[in-house]
């Protein structure tokens, strides 16, 4: 059985905290990419700084200001195919698992017969493996989706080999989420004002293509599945000039009762608003 290798250390600084005092999810993704690249250095054979092709992330515990963290990485068995490696973030103070990422690697490092089953970190609500590319043009034309971000890719969005960073891809989710909720008529006040909260519990990022610094981009977003207590949101980042997809991101968002700090059912009127938008 493969053993975990420590691949990253970090802490949660004040300037990476969200409005809700938690480490923003884009920084978890950044940490996973650091771990991925470090892990590649310990693998026999060619050692490309291979960016991940897919990260399948689950969140278990929020990391708060000044918390330290480490990442342990381990080869996976066929049970987690097609993913080849797991990266597990643990709180420095308690050792408890805060998040995990199963990775489909860019260097082709697949499952290992001696690898871990990593049962605790298995996909739950999102299927394993890469996303396909969605026809966002049709979804926009039918009013089921909206453009939630437009902007420019900057040099700092890329790694040293010219590949887009997974964290840069995911940062656009932060930019777009609020716009998607507004698109279906659910404002922040209408949601948070009634004591509800939202927390991402599962996330999958698929790299679909690359681009160069200076590329104009748009992100198209839509609600995909409306569950009793959770919803699936999809985001597709595209090259604005060609329409080519650069990444696909799915998030499973849990609806929270903020007073009880527990999951709760999505109120019927909000569920109806989301379904009316084509979810």
């Amino acid at each position: 059985m493969s053993a975990e290798t420590v691949t990253h250390h970090a802490f949660v600084p004040a300037w990476e905290i969200d409005a809700n005092d938690h480490w923003n999810t884009a920084f978890y993704v950044r940490a996973f990419q650091q771990a991925s690249e470090r892990f590649a250095q310990g693998v026999p054979g060619p050692q490309p700084a291979a960016p991940p092709e897919v990260f399948h992330v689950r969140f278990f515990r929020e990391l708060r200001l000044l918390e330290t963290l480490s990442i342990g990485s381990v080869r996976l068995s066929e049970a987690r195919a097609p993913y080849g490696v797991a990266h597990i973030i643990r709180e420095g103070s308690s050792g408890r698992v805060a998040a995990s990422a199963l990775e489909l690697r860019g260097d082709g490092l697949g499952p290992d017969p001696q690898g871990s089953d990593a049962e605790a970190y298995a996909p739950r609500s999102l299927p394993p493996g890469p996303h396909g590319v969605s026809d966002t043009g049709a979804a926009l034309a039918e009013g089921r989706a909206t453009v939630t971000h437009a902007g420019i890719l900057r040099p700092e969005d890329f790694d040293g080999t010219g590949k887009l960073l997974m964290s840069a891809l995911h940062m656009r989710v932060s930019d777009g989420n609020g716009h998607l909720w507004q698109f279906v008529g659910v404002s922040s006040d209408a949601f948070y004002g009634r004591g509800l909260g939202r927390a991402i519990v599962e996330l999958k990022i698929t790299r679909q293509g690359n681009a160069a610094p200076g590329t104009p981009v748009r992100q198209v977003s839509w609600f995909r599945e409306i569950g009793r207590k959770s919803i699936e949101i999809r985001h597709q980042l595209e090259d604005l000039r060609t329409g080519a997809a650069l990444s696909s991101i799915s998030t499973i968002t849990l609806i929270l009762d903020m007073a009880a700090r527990k999951s709760t059912e999505l109120p019927p009127d909000l569920a109806e608003a989301l379904r009316a938008a084509g979810a």
């Binding site: 969200d18 909206t146 453009v147 437009a150 609020g178 329409g243």
Partner: peptide
């Protein structure tokens, strides 16, 4: 490929982080 109004194109959108 961007959202439009009759008199403008939506050329940026984001959130205050």
């Amino acid at each position: 490929r961007l959202l439009r109004t009759e008199t403008a194109v939506a050329t940026y959108s984001g959130v205050v982080k």
